[in-house]
Simulated scan of single mutants.
Amino acid sequence: MDRPAATLIRPRAGAPVRVKPRATPRYTGPALVLTGGVIALYALFFLWPGVLGLLYSFTSYHGYGPLHFIGLENYTSLATDPTFYAALGRTFIYTVFSVPLGYVLSLTMAVALTNATAKGKSAARVIFFLPWLVSPIVTGVIWRWLFGENFGFVNFIIGQLGGHPAPWATNANLSLLVVIFASAWAGAAFNMLLFISALRNVPVSLYEAAQLDGANAWQRFARITIPAIRPTSLLVILLLTMGQMKEFALIQALNNGGPGTQNQLIVQYIYTTGFAKSQVGYASAASMVLLVILMAIALVQIAISRRSES
């Protein structure tokens, strides 16, 4: 019969008891290999391209040939480039409208799936999560088919009801509105999962006490749910903001920044400048400006999060 390690050694009478601690196994080899792999991949696909982008932003590089250092000329040109400001401004407009819509939609779906009295939650969970499984390119094609002016399903329904087809593709505001709804539809599932986890961590006793005090459903939601999920809300807003500021594939497939370039977002501007016009140095400077803007937004939201937690 096995005995504990402390009883295997019997000391003499009066002698101090010395128990040799068991050696804990150390898996330093696999840990170093896995950590080293992550660091190598991060350096290869994130750090090195960032360093190259910063280097190119100070040159007139066109994607081929030697690098010609021109200092801050690319940045001074960006400061007076109306096309850059138009793309950046349209990106801010898109973000300001799409982030609240995505937040409300994902929170609404999460509340519906965590409601104890709701029926058919399993089927709804699958339906809600399906858009997340579709690539942004496919999402853009789907919504382009839905809102096409001459072949779109929505205009077909409007015509059958006796109305006039809407200029979804030739009107800049309507075209941007379609992109906003498409992005909210496509990205709501992931944020819904974050909200579901947060809602399930809210103590049920708080709702029971509020109900006994006569609070209705809306008052319980506003006074208990919203404050309880504030950290998750800030995280979702941060992720949505970062994602919308970098939107490219969806709008590229849906309307290609049209009509014309009126809905060209900042990442599309960088892509067109760098690859279509072969102005890699100038596009790199624009990407560095976007990086600074995203870092500033992230720092502001992190500061707000820390202040709300204190």
Rank of each mutant, 00 (worst) to 15 (best):
F92C: 05
T28R: 03
E309G: 06
G243R: 03
P30D: 02
F147A: 03
A198S: 03
R230T: 14
R306D: 05
L41S: 11
P82G: 08
V280N: 00
S205P: 04
I137Y: 06
A112F: 13
L105W: 09
L101P: 04
F195G: 03
L67E: 04
V111Q: 08
Q211S: 15
Y94N: 06
L235C: 04
R200H: 13
Y42K: 05
G71D: 09
L8V: 10
T170F: 00
G260Y: 03
A188Y: 03
F92P: 02
P131F: 06
I224R: 10
L212N: 01
Q211R: 15
G29T: 14
F275R: 04
L265H: 00
S197P: 03
E149W: 10
T24L: 12
G163Q: 02
G36K: 11
G162M: 06
P203C: 07
L32K: 09
T272P: 01
N216S: 05
I137F: 07
W168T: 05
A182Q: 02
G257T: 13
L239N: 05
P82M: 02
S106Q: 04
G214P: 07
S60F: 07
V126D: 08
G89E: 01
L107M: 05
A276R: 15
P82F: 01
L72Y: 05
A86M: 12
T80D: 09
T95A: 01
A118F: 11
F128C: 11
R144G: 15
Y269C: 02
L133C: 12
P82R: 08
R144H: 12
W143Y: 04
L265E: 01
W48N: 04
L146S: 05
